[in-house]
Design a protein around this nucleic acid. Structure first.
Length: 327
DNA sequence: AACCTTGTCAACCGCTGCCCT
DNA sequence: CAGGGCAGCGGTTGACAAGGT
């Protein structure tokens, strides 16, 4: 009696995604968010399993993804993090904004491994290869002498995790992560509250307005803790459906600017960055991960205006009150 | 030009751990 | 506390591209 499959695989499509499917998925998530991945395919009319949708969105369609090869800085960071965390790609990815675990994993296997080997470093242990050989022999002896306590693997894992976390913190501190190299630094990630994300696209922008547009529902970005939900309800980005390939180009019209604010995290957001149930009314389907998607705008349009009166798209973000755990 | 090898990366598979009942 | 359902994670696969012979 095995588990039921995650989805009914009969009639479900597999393999590479088509533009049409991508469009459907983006359309659906931008308008509704993702409630539960399992239900999403049915609701969006996709003949895919929820897992596949999730993967496609996370690894490829999320607008905040960085494209292209990892920078030297990012690569170095991956190496440092891998030395501390091992193959915990999602943990590593959480320290590299805009990068996915899959991407990092692939890059590690195809580029970094080789690079390290060339440099005479064992990619598994991060020790010099010659030293590694010696220590392997020593460990072989140790193993036979030191009995391993298998009785409480859970506790072992917990203490191991704590140690790893501590080591990681130390390593990051040591590497002075607050100083950016040529890349991005988590310390530079501005803090913001979801309710302060605000994109205003007014009429001066020549958005297409055909029926096939994607309308980003303002409520998805508005926290009930914000008394000004109506004023911040100004996300009305329109995406032409006919030319999906231009989708993100269109999105780049948006201009953004960070605003400094003293607002603190409301009660609706728990420490782990998730919204509490009370938030569901208005934040119903978007979670913090989705909101982070918006940082694509920031990368490209740092020079936007707030209330500049010229009708430029805008986005107000609170630098002080949102910790990007995931970035 | 045809075939083979190697590299890359999107996508899949199956396991794990968390949460809810 | 146990069991089921789910999302998330990491390993692996396979299609395609690029380079070599």
């Amino acid at each position: 009696m095995g588990r039921q499959p995650c989805c009914d695989k009969v009639g479900l499509k597999k393999g590479p995604w088509t533009i049409e499917e991508d469009k459907k998925l983006i359309n659906f998530i931008l308008t509704n968010g993702h409630c539960c991945w399992r239900a999403l395919p049915k609701l969006s009319g996709l003949l895919r399993c929820g897992k596949s949708c999730r993967l496609r969105w996370i690894n490829y369609l999320r607008p905040d993804l960085k494209r292209g090869l990892l920078s030297e800085y990012e690569e170095q960071k991956v190496i440092n993090l891998h030395a501390q965390l091992g193959n915990r790609w999602s943990k590593i990815a959480s320290h590299l904004p805009g990068r996915t675990d899959n991407e990092i994993k692939n890059h590690w296997n195809t580029h970094i491994k080789k690079k390290l080997r060339k440099m005479g470093i064992d990619p598994l242990t991060h020790k010099p290869l010659s030293e590694q050989e010696a220590s392997q022999q020593a460990q072989g002896r140790k193993k036979s002498l030191v009995p391993h306590d298998d009785k409480n693997p859970k506790q072992d894992q917990q203490t191991k995790d704590e140690q790893e976390q501590h080591q990681l913190e130390q390593a990051l501190e040591k590497n002075n992560t607050s100083v950016s190299g040529d890349g991005f630094c988590i310390d530079e990630v501005p803090l913001l509250n979801p309710h302060e994300i605000l994109i205003d696209i007014s009429s001066s922008h020549h958005h297409h307005s055909n029926d096939d547009n994607v309308n980003i529902n303002t409520s998805k970005f508005t926290s009930p803790s914000s008394s000004s939900s109506s004023t911040s309800s100004c996300i009305s980005s329109v995406v032409p459906g006919d030319e999906f390939s231009k989708f993100f180009d269109e999105m780049e019209i948006l201009d953004l600017k960070w605003l400094s604010s003293d607002d603190s995290l409301g009660d609706d957001i728990s420490k782990d960055g998730k919204f509490n149930n009370s938030t569901v009314d208005t934040m119903n389907l978007w979670d913090i991960n989705d909101l982070s998607s918006l940082d694509m705008f920031m990368n490209e349009h740092d020079d936007g205006f707030i209330g500049n009166g010229n009708g430029c798209s805008r986005m107000v973000l609170d630098q002080d009150s949102w910790t990007f755990d995931l970035l």
